[in-house]
């Protein structure tokens, strides 16, 4: 009872999905549409691991009834990268080792990509304010802030997906 079809634009393509009333966008993305890059964290709007963009603005998909995005444009981590290679902020995350366990990373990347879209050269205060709702328990934020600053300064390599940053396994550094 009460199920309805909701349609919206997801990472550049139109989707239609039959949802139960007030299912969260986050659960629909993961369980029904297979977009598992958006993580389920606290489901309280307190951790940011479920961050997605709605019409280009970051929102917590765990607090968003999917009916509320009817006709709107939703972008998840799956839609952040260009067709080939990585977005500069993704490359910067790799180069600055801006993750440890990786659970917060999709939300962080979606958020910081948007930050740079809004503010190509963000101030330290703007970075801090933007990150304030996304919890990282591993890195202590330092390398994430470094990654944002590097991406803003255009100071990442433009290498594509294959550019690993692993130390040489032989141990010769």
């Amino acid at each position: 009872m009460g199920s309805r079809i909701v349609s919206f634009e997801l990472c550049g393509r139109e989707v239609e999905v039959l949802v139960s009333p007030m299912a969260t966008l986050q659960s629909v993305l993961r369980s029904q549409l297979g977009y598992t890059g958006t993580k389920e964290g606290c489901r309280q709007g307190g951790c940011g691991s479920c961050t997605v963009l709605v019409d280009g603005e970051p929102m917590m998909s765990c607090l968003l009834p999917v009916e509320d995005v009817e006709g709107r444009r939703v972008t998840t981590i799956e839609g952040i990268a260009p067709v080939a290679g990585l977005a500069p902020i993704q490359q910067a995350f790799i180069e600055k080792n801006a993750f440890q366990c990786g659970y917060c990373t999709p939300g962080m990347v979606v958020l910081t990509k948007t930050l740079l879209d809004h503010h190509p050269s963000p101030s330290r205060d703007e970075i801090i304010d933007a990150l304030g709702g996304n919890v990282c328990r591993c890195t202590g934020y330092a390398p994430i802030i470094e990654a944002i600053e590097a991406a803003a300064a255009g100071a990442t390599t433009d290498a594509g997906r294959d550019a690993g940053d692993w130390p040489d396994p032989s141990g010769e550094r």
């Binding site: 080792n97 440890q100 328990r137 591993c138 890195t139 202590g140 934020y141 330092a142 390398p143 940053d165 692993w166 130390p167 550094r173």
Partner: peptide, 15 residues
């Protein structure tokens, strides 16, 4: 893996 060691130390300092 020096990058992971540094990541642990910096994150651990914050924690």
């Amino acid at each position: 893996n020096p990058a992971l060691v540094r990541g642990q130390i910096v994150g651990g300092a914050w924690m």
